[in-house]
Design a protein around this nucleic acid. Structure first.
Lengths: 347, 347
DNA sequence: TTGTAAGCGTTATCAC
DNA sequence: GTGATAACGCTTACAA
């Protein structure tokens, strides 16, 4: 921000409003301390005094300055949330519920996107730490060393989400991507399918998709099989990429019998494309998605997919932070939420 | 937060880390003022001094305290964003781009949900003002009097989004919902359809949907027609509500020829349901959506809809705040982004 | 139950 | 180009 800007902003602030605690105290005929108490621990103040103060607050339209409060008390009432992208409904859903829960407890949420990059995440962590948040909610367990170090040094509670397979720095709320892959393999195998492909994010970007692939692969290996193809799409993946994935799979093995897509958006667009091309699903090609998004159940055939309780993850993550802050829980914790394979028409 | 909590948090902070500017200054052999300058206006510091300070910062892992900065400078580098819900992709998209743009300028975004309630929005504004944000981005132009008063008094730049029809408090970036309704009416009329229905949000919740309905209605009136039905669904509207809307319309008028849905999610689920029921779209029932979401183009028939540049709205809103802050723009402003009727298969 | 005094960590101001 | 000192608005600790 330019020099001129700072001046402008400052003068704006100084002229406008600018009611502070002393002003309230003066009007109420008390000390600032009493005003402070009315705000944070009203039960310690005599009823009459309290009413006077409350009246003065209303009259002056007093709004406390949280920066001053933080400086004096070292509690920010801020939780920092870093997700790969708000454009993916998965994360948007999660954040929705994080915000909802935290709002109720008068915490503010500051949000940032890593764009699927550990380095960008590191910069965000660094920048968010300047606000002295009372908690961090990150996505996944893959972080730079500096990110870990910064967070550890800060002593802030950290929740890592969406990854129940790997060890967390502090607390974690996630699900087993590995298990998801195995479940899907199991399903395909139970239908006697052997030519099975995987379509997901690039392996250097999407570590949780990697785990799903590994799960699929390991289960297939147990049956003496190997995936016929693995397609890696660059993130973020717009829905239309499902068709690209489909085409790439078919280019590698035109006789592919089943595809596991790492996201329902991809699976849905691929399935609709199959319909358009007259490829019969699931007879000719079985399709399984991941996430159980909107419309998974509305298309024909309905999409077989793995349901993930994204909202629950958001709620649990927020609660994990809150529990640590109010002391009801002390150490590290690892929460794994269950996945559910929804067998519908497409596989 | 409980008394015990405050103590615990405080002690954690005091023990862990706690490197401050004086520590850096001491190590670098300068004053805090010089450290401060290195951080905000490096060009004012001699190269040698600067390097010493930068070295000390790295060595100590110093992280500035933005609360102290705000207190001293009255610039928070925070923008508060309030949307109805992050569960709706529309707003998630918008926020995604707001965050992206503001991050680049080292602003943090704090986010809140109004849940389509003006009263909740008011509480959020009140609570966010405690953080002394440098800007506010709100959704729509419908707010309580107190909300307006608080924002006006604070002197903070405010951008209202998504509503280009009504007067804004300060700045606005939106589109004409009225025009959207008229466009869709025009389309239906051009196809000779006369029995036209509308499905949208409850009129006391979704004011922008109201405007779309009014646009539709006014254009129909010019042709001597009136809508055969208007369905009001309670927000938030899950995709499946599209089917409910469809059924309600058909219950009122089984001969309805066309439906304008206030969101693509509704339109898509209704269209897929028509397919399932063997109702031919558009011959038997024409369907038009709003928003041009994912999959609008992937289903069969492809959804005719109104494309809204949600991302662009986010970018423009963020830029409007930035422009005001750096003084390049002074007064109120009203930006209206264009809508585009995408005529595809469904109408 | 209430008040007084001393910080919290930074930046603005002015002097050098 | 650099430093000393006084804010910034609130809470904590202690005293009354």
């Amino acid at each position: 921000m330019s020099e001129a800007t700072e001046k402008r902003v400052r003068s704006r602030r100084l002229s406008g409003g600018g009611v502070k605690m002393v002003d309230v105290a003066r009007l109420a005929g008390t000390s600032t301390q009493t005003v402070s108490r009315v705000l944070s621990r009203p039960e310690l103040v005599a009823d009459d005094t309290r009413k006077l103060v409350e009246q003065a607050i209303r009259e002056l339209n007093y709004i406390p300055n949280s920066a001053a409060r933080l400086l004096a008390s070292s509690v920010s009432h801020i939780v920092a949330v870093i997700i790969p992208s708000l454009s993916a409904t998965v994360y948007a859903q999660e954040v929705h519920h994080i915000v909802r829960v935290l709002e109720e407890h008068s915490f503010s949420v500051v949000i940032g996107h890593s764009d699927y990059s550990e380095l960008r995440e590191e910069r965000l962590v660094q920048s968010f730490l300047e606000r002295r948040p009372d908690g961090f909610i990150l996505t996944g367990t893959q972080h730079t060393d500096l990110t870990r170090q910064l967070l550890r040094n800060s002593g802030v509670p950290v929740v890592e989400t969406f990854d129940g397979d790997n060890a967390a720095m502090d607390m974690s709320v996630g699900f087993s991507n590995l298990e998801a892959g195995r479940k899907v393999a199991e399903l395909f195998l139970s239908r006697g399918l052997t030519r099975i492909a995987y379509v997901g994010g690039r392996s250097d970007q999407d570590f949780r998709s990697n785990a799903r692939f590994e799960g699929l692969q390991s289960r297939l290996a147990e049956a003496g099989l190997a995936p016929v193809a693995r397609i890696e799409l660059t993130l973020p993946m717009p829905a239309g990429d499902g068709v690209r994935g489909l085409d790439q799979v078919l280019a590698i093995d035109p006789l592919t019998q089943a595809i596991f897509f790492s996201a329902d958006t991809l699976a849905i667009s691929a399935l609709l494309e199959c319909n358009r091309r007259g490829m019969r699903v699931p007879e000719q090609l079985a399709i399984c998605g991941f996430g159980n998004y909107d419309f998974a159940d509305a298309i024909v055939p309905a999409l077989t997919t793995v349901a993930v309780p994204f909202e629950q993850i958001g709620v649990l993550a927020a609660n994990a932070i809150l529990a640590r802050l109010d002391g009801s829980v002390q150490g590290p914790s690892q929460t794994v939420v269950p996945l559910q394979l929804l067998r519908r028409g497409s596989a």
